[in-house]
């Protein structure tokens, strides 16, 4: 159902640390593996071994360059999946109610049995988080691993999204962003977590932690070492004195 809940009990989402993400695509493939086998239809790959393979993925890692005016260019690896927006435009446009936002935890899902595959929700999403599966004709998107995070067949420690579990660098965090005391909320507060395209008012739940300042030495006057060689006896004299001053000598 396409109307958004007035509020959700929790705001589950991801916090992605751009300071730490090395762009390894592990989260991309773990997501593909889990979601091919689980929630809804498999994520198909059209022309899998051909000239223009085009598969459905729910998570993708972009790479950008930032050129600051006074320091070397930086590279930022940038994973992106559904941001589980509070004000999800993808939901309200859906004519069938297949797209909906759960009032319980804020997860935005597609009920594949109701989806006509019109694609409008993907058009409405600013973030490119929805891909229409070409084989199945239904809309696919990140489920926040709703079939993992509550899954009683999984050990408790594994009840996190597949992408979070697999991220080798620990750049992905999962939790309740509606709870100011949750680890993720604290992280967002500490590190200045940000929204993507805030001006479009989708009010994304997922937050991005910006890279820490880079190349400080290029712009600041870091200290350099003072020579001892100028002292009497040069380096070797200094060494003898230094060793003599050491305990045990």
């Amino acid at each position: 159902m396409s109307d958004l809940p007035l509020s959700t009990k929790r705001k589950l989402g991801l916090v992605i640390d751009l300071d730490t993400c090395v762009g390894c695509h592990a989260c991309v493939v773990a997501c593909k593996g889990w979601n091919t086998e689980n929630y809804g239809a498999p994520l198909s790959d059209i022309g899998a071994y051909g000239q223009a393979p085009a598969g459905t993925f729910l998570n993708r890692v972009h790479s950008y360059e930032i050129s600051p005016p006074d320091a070397p260019t930086q590279t930022v690896h940038f994973p992106k999946s559904c941001l589980h927006c509070e004000n999800a435009p993808c939901v309200t446009v859906c004519p069938t109610g297949a797209s909906y936002k759960r009032s319980e935890d804020g997860i935005v899902l597609v009920d594949e049995s109701a989806c006509i595959g019109c694609g409008l929700c993907a058009w409405a999403c600013p973030y490119g988080a929805r891909e229409l599966d070409a084989a199945e004709g239904v809309m696919k998107k990140c489920t926040l691993c709703v079939d993992r995070i509550y899954n009683e067949n999984l050990p408790e420690i594994d009840r996190v999204p597949a992408c979070v579990r697999t991220c080798p660098a620990g750049a992905r965090h999962f939790g309740d962003l509606g709870d100011p005391d949750s680890d993720v909320s604290k992280l967002v507060a500490e590190r200045g977590g940000m929204d993507l395209m805030p001006e479009l008012d989708a009010a994304p739940t997922n937050k991005y932690l910006p890279p820490r300042p880079r190349d400080a030495a290029e712009t600041s006057a870091a200290p350099v070492l003072e020579p001892v060689a100028a002292e009497a006896g040069g380096l070797l004299g200094w060494i003898d004195r230094a060793l003599a001053a050491m305990p045990g000598a």
Partner: peptide
């Protein structure tokens, strides 16, 4: 604004997330 990185300098797409095509690119 799309990346949230615009305040740090000019932002440029470097490598795409996939060399092949996908629904988003086609659509």
């Amino acid at each position: 604004t799309a990346t949230g990185l615009g305040t740090r300098g000019s932002v440029r797409a470097f490598e795409p997330p996939h060399t092949g095509t996908n629904y988003l690119l086609k659509e």
